[in-house]
């Protein structure tokens, strides 16, 4: 079973500790997304898995093998890079076949795999083209194709969608999800975009400052963030975090309320606030309101909400859906 396992892995560049004793378990066949702000160590973690960097301490296992000392090629992984890393002087076919040439595969087998991947990725007609003659989406698919033909145990993706425009990004996201379904191979995917993480992942690993903050399914993270960082990072618009007396009323240092768990009440409410800004998104309306006790709060209201900036409103919170955090920022039960 090619599970991917990290045990107390540390890595520093000079004096900077990029990964601080990170442990992880990724189950065979899972689509795992590592998400976090830039500089959190997620890309380094992926490069350690790939074997492009060496861990300072700890064990990295793929399947039942400790791979710390194995060259990238011996780890049975394939990686898709943010920049795609297509060889500019080779056409699509040679880009996909290049790595296989060195693995001792029969010529006919290489050809079969490349043709099959090209078919899967709708690259059939483009095999003779050089990367410069491809669109962004086609380059992206070529990069994925180059990974597929290796038939790896684990796919590694390093922010593969960040060079695509918004529309293409949504499309490719769906294609990636489809690909994972049809191949059933373990995928480890790094991104800073929490929407990508929520939509693609079987399991999300949230990282911050070289540590894993929380691991879980998208909904687990959304519903039960274990700490303030995860609470603030997952979900858009972000969770309202209230401190001071308003929080202490609930026995917490910090009180977290998702925007959809606040409602604008006609008469009685928990807090009185003044509307400062209103964003109409069609399906939803985001109302920004300043409450004396709780600061600026974002309320997710229905599409046909008609409050105006300057209006005084009452805000009511859904007490069953509040998140309480202690002074250390940890979730209270």
């Amino acid at each position: 079973m090619p599970d991917v396992r990290l045990h107390n892995v540390s890595k520093s560049f000079g004096t900077e500790d990029v990964l601080k004793s990170v442990s992880l378990d990724i189950v065979d066949g899972e689509f795992a997304v590592i998400v976090g702000p830039s500089g959190c160590g997620k890309s380094t973690l992926l490069r350690l898995l790939a074997g492009l960097e060496q861990a300072d301490a700890g064990d990295i296992e793929i399947g039942d093998r400790r791979v710390n000392d194995l060259a990238p090629a011996a780890r049975r992984i394939a990686m898709v890079f943010q920049s795609y890393a297509l060889y500019p002087h080779m056409n699509v076919y040679r880009n996909m076949a290049f790595g296989l040439k060195f693995s001792g595969l029969e010529h006919s087998e290489i050809e079969r795999r490349v043709r099959k991947a090209a078919e899967t990725l709708k690259l059939d007609g483009l095999l003779e083209r050089k990367p410069a003659e491809l669109s962004g989406g086609q380059r992206q698919r070529t990069a994925i194709g180059r990974a597929i033909v290796r038939e790896p145990d684990v796919f590694l993706f390093d922010e593969p969608l960040s060079n695509l425009d918004a529309a293409l990004r949504v499309n490719t996201r769906l294609e990636l999800a489809g690909l994972h379904r049809s191949l059933g191979t373990t995928m480890v995917y790094v991104t800073h975009d929490q929407v990508e993480a929520m939509t693609l992942a079987d399991r999300i690993i949230v990282m911050n400052e070289g540590r894993v903050e929380q691991t879980g399914t998208p909904l687990e993270l959304y519903r039960e963030p274990q700490n303030l960082f995860v609470a603030g990072f997952i979900g858009a618009p972000r969770m309202n975090l209230v401190t001071g007396a308003a929080a202490q009323e609930f026995g917490a240092e910090t009180l977290g309320i998702r925007p959809e768990h606040l409602t604008i009440a006609p008469r009685a409410g928990d807090w009185t606030a003044t509307v400062s800004m209103v964003e109409h998104l069609g399906s939803d309306t985001y109302v920004y309101a300043d409450a004396a006790e709780a600061g600026t709060l974002i309320v997710r209201a229905g599409g046909n909400t008609s409050v105006e900036p300057g209006a005084a409103v009452k805000l009511k919170l859904d007490r069953s859906a509040i998140h309480r955090f202690d002074a250390g920022g940890t979730r209270m039960t």
């Binding site: 790939a50 492009l52 990238p72 090629a73 060889y87 500019p88 790595g99 296989l100 693995s103 180059r146």
Partner: peptide
Amino acid sequence: DLKDAARCDGVGEVHIFFSIVVPL
């Protein structure tokens, strides 16, 4: 990334030099 991609593909350093670096 180009060199890393080749290393992930198991291309040896000598081949990386002659097949990727020299043409580029």
